[in-house]
């Protein structure tokens, strides 16, 4: 298969979307927390928890949708816990994020062990998978139809979340309060905004998105839970959010760049290039882009 054939292949397009979906959902979650001034370093742990909750609940109830709901609730609960640790106990925000990641990595292993007796994988459970969506009419359009239709329902959800979150941040009172708290919590408090409440809501929303991203991993990307299956995606999502400059559309653009890099890494392996070096690409790209952008910002000190 030649390089050009791979790029124009609908399967490549589908791979980009598959890789993109969890990263985009997670990065949007980090975006909301970041704009409220409570940067969510615990995203990796929230995703992991969501991935396990989705598998367990969908296996017990037989419903993928109930699994997804459980994943979202679990992520939101961790977000609430993190908000309590930071604003209730006065713990450091970054340390709270690291603690969430550590607790989730151990806690999901324990949870899987007590639910199935296995510490490594949930292969024995008959867990659900989120359905793919065949778009009526669209799928019949020649050329574009097969590209756009037939992807996982959470992929469409992730893409739909971009304009929704962009509108929420820019045009709603809630979004305005989030931004006010993030820019200057003291000034926000003087005009009667409860900083703690807004940060709690932002972290809960962030956690819900994290849970959803995790559910996609264990109920869409693959159909099982494995120990530490997020494999650093929560950290790439952090890099994506920072590259996206704090806007939903910027985050989408950064996600597409990283997803294409990762897809290239996956497809280039078929040419016999070393697998490990290809796997480096999605991690090197954000370092290069971030450095270039901050270096340019430094050259023009007017900035944002």
């Amino acid at each position: 298969m030649t390089g050009l054939a791979i790029i124009t292949d609908p399967a490549t397009f589908a791979t980009v979307l598959r890789v993109m979906t969890p990263l985009l959902i997670a990065a949007l979650g980090i975006l909301i927390s970041d704009r409220a001034g409570v940067f969510n370093l615990g995203m990796e742990g929230m995703m992991l928890t969501g991935a396990l909750a989705g598998v367990l609940v969908s296996a017990w109830t037989g419903s993928a949708w109930l699994g997804l709901s459980a994943a979202i609730v679990a992520g939101g609960l961790i977000g609430a816990l993190m908000a309590f640790a930071v604003n209730g106990l006065g713990a450091n925000l970054i340390i709270a994020g690291i603690a969430v990641n550590l607790a989730a990595s151990s806690g999901t292993t324990l949870g899987l062990f007590f639910a199935t007796g296995d510490k490594g994988m949930s292969g024995a459970l008959r867990s659900g998978v989120m359905p793919s969506l065949d778009l009526p009419f669209v799928r019949d359009i020649p050329g574009i139809g097969p590209l756009v239709s037939g992807h996982n329902v959470l992929t469409y959800g992730a893409l739909l979340a971009v304009p929704l979150i962009s509108l929420m941040m820019a045009r709603t009172a809630f979004g305005l309060r989030i931004r006010a708290v993030g820019v200057d919590p003291k000034a926000a408090a003087t005009v009667g905004i409860s900083v703690k409440l807004i940060q709690l809501q932002a972290l809960v929303l962030s956690g819900m998105l994290g849970g959803m991203a995790g559910a996609y991993l264990s109920m869409g990307y693959v159909s099982w839970f494995a120990q530490d299956m997020t494999a650093g995606r929560g950290f790439i999502a952090i890099a994506i959010e920072v590259m996206g400059m704090g806007t939903a559309w910027g985050t989408l653009a950064a996600t597409i760049v990283i997803a294409i890099a990762e897809t290239l890494a996956i497809t280039m392996q078929t040419f016999g290039l070393p697998n490990e070096l290809m796997q480096m690409i999605p991690y090197v790209v954000p370092i290069v882009i971030l450095t270039i952008w901050t270096a340019r910002g430094r050259a023009r000190p007017a900035g944002r």
């Binding site: 920072v242 480096m280 370092i287 901050t294 270096a295």
Partner: peptide, 30 residues
């Protein structure tokens, strides 16, 4: 990267960890 170009060190070090991991596994493998 931080001192020369202001790149946020928490984010770059976080992803660099994984880049180094895969470079290292490549070296180990070959």
């Amino acid at each position: 990267l931080r001192l020369r170009w202001d790149a946020p060190e928490m984010v770059t070090s976080l992803v660099l960890n994984f880049a180094i991991l895969y470079a290292g596994v490549f070296f180990l493998n070959y």
